[in-house]
Design a protein around this nucleic acid. Structure first.
Lengths: 331, 331
DNA sequence: TCCCCATATGCTCAAATTAAGTATAAGTAT
DNA sequence: ATACTTATACTTAATTTGAGCATATGGGGA
């Protein structure tokens, strides 16, 4: 075995820090994207350099360039994943330095989420329409994706490969007896990518040429630059998992909020409807919130009490978060 | 906002792939460490270069060098975290290229886990003695760590800082009403590090000079090279979380095993004892295993039936894994 | 003013899950 | 044979969950 960490000759890698900056606004999940420069290009995730000379840690560097580039001050920040596949940048097919991106998720309150010049807050589900089950199972799934995935399965080399593909899609999309697992966002995106069902596939050369997929993003969502949609899928899956056992949802809430607002925010990220009375019982029982004493009459009906996050909860419960039924109502 | 991904001038970064290669042997969790070269140095995690020219993906590169360096073929591999703090390499204090390490966890079955030359399989809990609750709450916690953490709390600047420290240690170690949360391995290690209670702290210059801490690893575990113990803490926390909802435990099991062996393996990673009858009911109910028909008489008592993993479970349940009480018996 | 509507909030109840026993079976060692 | 070890089946009470019903409290219009 090698004795020293291979400190190697300088490698041909370029490292940057990518950010999925997310919030919830008007009961919908939003993500900050840098607008396409022209009609041929696509929106992209904001990203910035990592400067080893001035940034003590990568997270510090990330916060620095987010502030510089967008003027935003983000709260919660968590490292997501480091993306380094060769073809993540389709232009960089042969030679050239490998582009490595350390991806982060950052959360910000709607009130602090101004719109930086050149960027926009996009509805997350415009990028992943099949992930939004808040109003029931998306029609898109059965009407379009399921048959297309079916063809992909049938297109496999042999019976074994076919079985493997079927297994994968059953798991990812819950087509057989498994229910829908909201957390498997990445698996679903990856399957669609491999099956040539997302617009990116064309660019990336997996599909030769126009198969009449120009309407692709009508059903597979808005295509993004490079592998940025994959990064977003990773982020959404991670967030969905995380709200269940850490109180991260409050990072996107205003300081005072009604329980229904809180529920809508959770539903927005989770992509699933929740039972109102039980939700209320749950956050009360977990001790996640405390009343402020004030009420909000903006709803039309009976005024709702305003609550605030109760930070002490993390000192009382091992894994405080918004418990949710996992893929139960799914079918 | 910048229009192009800052493809920047070549940065002074060196990237390598680090691996936490783990297994369970003799009912204890093990991790592969490269032996110290001399008495002054410390064991280290194996790591290898990332070669953008030959490795299509980082995971591929990882598997390649693991095979080359150790002769091992690992099964399950998952990216953990990318470590890039300035002082992760204490020798690299000023200038010089920043050392960035993309950390992975890899699991391997005991049967495949030969001992590579120059390396050894270490008991994970030699490195984190306070994490092993299989035989009850570790005495070390109350006898040594709690008072020392207490002094650290008292040593805070002002009342506010003191409260913050107390809050953190309550959460991490479950000192107040919160129970022990087995998953918070990293938080605990980080607190001990900041409190100057692990041997690494001395080297890293946070503590001026010998405070009679030469016996440190009697109570804080075997110190490792650079920030490798932090990487291990990250890995252990991640694995503990993961076994609960993905069947990763079977990656370290032999093909056929008894239910008690399986339970011991889970306990080894989880660091907590489990109720035998319930464990058995649970794996049966989840459909995680199926009988092989054979029995094992190696236990001394009644021969146990041999089971094998039932891969179909992932097609049937949304999140198949070994459910466990979370910090319930903790106190 | 009073009724209707909308939302908020409190409460009930059955089903499912969980934690923790007790009892029994089937081997090995002495 | 007897003691001892481990395996496995079954019971029970407590807790958690999913879902619905009932009541409260505001605004707006007849």
């Amino acid at each position: 075995m090698s004795k020293k960490t291979p400190s190697g000759s300088t490698q041909a890698v370029v490292l940057d820090l990518g950010a999925v900056i997310a919030t919830v606004a008007d009961d919908d999940p939003r993500v900050l994207l840098v607008n396409a420069e022209d009609t041929d290009s696509r929106p992209r995730l904001p990203s910035g350099p990592f400067d080893p000379d001035s940034d003590r840690t990568m997270e510090e560097g990330l916060r620095r360039w987010i502030a510089e580039q967008t003027g935003l001050t983000v709260g919660f920040v968590e490292q997501l994943y480091t993306f380094g596949d060769r073809f993540r940048d389709p232009d960089n097919r042969a030679g050239g330095p490998r582009s490595i991106s350390v991806g982060y998720v950052a959360l910000i309150r709607q009130s602090a989420a101004k719109r930086p010049a050149g960027s926009d807050w996009f509805d997350w589900y415009r990028l992943f329409p099949w992930e939004d089950w808040r109003h029931g199972r998306p029609a898109l799934l059965d009407e379009i994706l399921k048959p297309k995935i079916g063809s992909w399965i049938d297109g496999a080399e042999d019976a074994k490969a076919k079985r493997a593909r079927r297994g994968r899609s059953d798991i990812a999309f819950g087509f057989s007896d498994v229910g829908w697992d909201a957390d498997r966002v990445l698996e679903r995106y990856e399957l669609l990518y491999e099956a040539g069902l997302v617009a990116e596939t064309v660019t990336d050369g997996r599909i030769k040429t126009g198969q009449g997929q120009s309407d692709a993003h009508a059903w597979t969502g808005l295509p993004l630059h490079q592998d940025h949609r994959r990064i977003l899928a990773t982020a959404l899956g991670r967030l969905r998992g995380k709200i269940r056992y850490r109180p991260v949802i409050f990072e996107v809430m205003p300081i005072a909020f009604t329980l229904l607002q809180l529920q809508r925010a959770v539903e927005a990220l989770a992509g699933a409807p929740l039972h109102k009375q039980n939700f209320r019982r749950l956050v009360a029982a977990e001790g996640l919130v405390e009343p402020t004493g004030r009420v909000s009459s903006e709803t039309g009906g009976r005024p709702a009490e305003l609550f605030r996050f109760r930070p002490d909860v993390v000192r009382e419960r091992p894994a405080p978060g918004v418990r949710m039924p996992r893929g139960r109502r799914a079918k």
